[in-house]
Amino acid sequence: ARSPGVPVAPVRDPDCDDLDVEQAALAAVQYVNNNHKHGYKYTLNQVDKARVYQRRPTGEVYVLEIDLVETCCHVLDPTPLENCTVRQLTEHAVEGDCDVSVLKVDNQFMVLNAKCESSPDSAEDVRKICPNCPLLAPLNDTKVVHAVEAALTAFNAQKHNNYFKLQEISRAQFSPLQSSVYTEFVTVPTDCKPIDVIDPAACNPLPNQHGFCKGTLTEKVGGGEDVVATCTVFVAVPAVPAPQPDGIESSLGPAVPAEPAVPAGPPVAAGPAVALGPLLVDAPAV
């Protein structure tokens, strides 16, 4: 026990590139990505500060300030973080600043707490490196909402097996001349067929399936609009049960595959319960 009000002296101030510091930072990044359900995954850019405190009875607490940068993978996208492309500054990237505490015990890192603030790069900084690059737009802007609805309508018009509903608008950019709107949004397939949807609210989302879409709406000079939509749909497929020794009955119930909204591609990532296969579904210009 220590007297109240007496701060615990730090054990040491390690290098920010110390291997343990990096492992603690990576554990914190994983924690952050697992605990926000909107927007994109972040990846570690830099460790700003590191301090280590002793923890009783055992262990050490790493108190870190870390800089994160946005990737192009949505947090619901099962793609491993290592395979996610970092969002380039020319795309008006978002950064995150986090204060985290990570406990190290028995060579295992466990995040105790994390507090993060995210903010887009300044428009001036984007302009410096790319004068004509589109800047981020508010997600609730009427032009953005219209562009997403038009892109989703175009995608659903392709008559996939299922009707897709909008789950989240995750990104939007206006071109400098305001003549086109670029959007990224998340969709979810439903139990409705595209051709007989009267009330979308009555369609129920299928579990463990999401479409990650990009759409561009361009206003034509003579009136009218061009819409382009591209979606990557991840479909959950049941995992193959591990072979059981003779005489031992599997505790798993029968695998009942839900009909995927789109045919599943080859598995690329395996988790404890499901394997996920991506399928690129491209919608040409409409």
């Binding site: 290098d15 990096e22 850019n45 500060k49 590191a50 940068v69």
Partner: peptide, 27 residues
């Protein structure tokens, strides 16, 4: 006789290397 010169003196205190390396780009 030549008086011994000053020794190397105490080692400079180690300076923690922070912030660490930038993995992607400077923000």
């Amino acid at each position: 006789p030549v008086a011994p010169g000053p020794g190397p003196g105490p080692a400079a205190p180690a300076i923690p290397l922070c912030p660490g390396r930038i993995r992607h780009f400077k923000i």
